[in-house]
Design a protein around this nucleic acid. Structure first.
Lengths: 183, 183
DNA sequence: TCTGCGTCTGCGGATTTCGCAACCCGGATG
DNA sequence: CATCCGGGTTGCGAAATCCGCAGACGCAGA
């Protein structure tokens, strides 16, 4: 990583040319055929914000070789597009939600419509369609046992298309990171 | 897909001159597992930051009935204690990790030591001890099929104490929120 | 009562955010 | 070939925010 001295005030305009080279190699939408084309710079910005969601734009810009305003625009666009969100995350146990469970679900009929119904439930923190002996896996966050019981037995099983469920109550959360891309 | 894009600037003009009295603090050691018992004000601060991790301290203070400096101190403490972290979260698919899976694991012997071994793997995004037909559930984030295969068959199954595994490859992530307490 | 400890508040100064106008550049158009 | 166009980038002030620093306040324990 070379020194990217952000051009000070009114130096000669040639300086701004070298700070550009690090941005150069970014119009190859990789082989990420499906989703939005994140270039290397946006990826680097995300990586910065995965380390600290409140890091100043100028610091990010210095790290990725961009101006502060450019970082600001890209961050705003990433947020608007829903590619990333900047949020506080906690261990639910410490904020009063004492029962969590992963629930595996088998579906008859349209899986996606069931998934949409589960997504609408506030207690469903995480909904994913899977291949394997479950069609859906859902993470539930509840306040206590009664709440958990009600969600699983009354609400989830009441969704049309749900054939069966299997629950895995959380005993202890050992790891929870958000550092994709930071490897 | 990403339904919860938080509106960036939405200062809540609701007054809050209450919430001053219950500022009792029990300063326990705040390691994973204990409950530091957060008071209502800290909870409200967390809630604000779950809506927008970059919300200014002054705005948070107005919402929870505290000065800007006090909010700043509390946030810093919550971060230092590890009660919460402010980070960017993304759908891994959009940032180049195209294979994810939930893996259920059965263990013989000490479950926690196996969990610790899995926690050390960077591909293990999420590790939780559960009750039910699995002893552990682990979320794996990989770049491609080869990577996933290697992690599951070579690394996870090589951990002493792992009796069997069952994999659930992700087909589509439908929901992913971080809004505990915001219900 | 006094002291120690932790938290809250108010206040400048440094830093950051934000909006704006201009610039550069590749691609499309005539 | 000239021109226009749009996305992306840059630089720059003004406004807002962050940050450190006392001082004040409340609450336990000596």
């Amino acid at each position: 990583m070379h020194s990217e001295v952000v051009a000070s005030r009114s130096a000669d305009p040639r300086d701004s040319r070298d700070s550009r080279e690090s941005v150069r190699e970014s119009h190859r939408e990789s082989r990420n055929g499906s989703s939005p084309h994140l270039d290397a710079v946006s990826l680097a910005i995300i990586e910065q914000l995965q380390q600290d969601g409140r890091r100043p734009y100028a610091a990010i810009g210095k790290a990725v070789g961009l101006s502060e305003a450019a970082v600001r625009q890209r961050v705003q666009k990433l947020l608007d597009q829903g590619v990333m969100q900047i949020v506080a995350v906690t261990d639910p146990l410490t904020v009063g939600f004492r029962r969590q469970a992963m629930v595996g679900i088998n579906v008859e009929g349209d899986v996606e419509s069931v998934a949409d119904a589960l997504t609408a439930m506030p207690e469903c923190e995480y909904v994913v369609m899977t291949a394997g002996s479950f069609d859906l896996m859902v993470e539930i966050v509840c306040e206590d046992d009664d709440h958990l019981l009600e969600v699983i037995n009354r609400r989830i099983r009441a969704v049309p298309g749900v054939r069966s469920t299997e629950s895995f109550v959380y005993l202890k959360l050992k790891k929870q990171t958000y550092m994709w891309g930071t490897r």
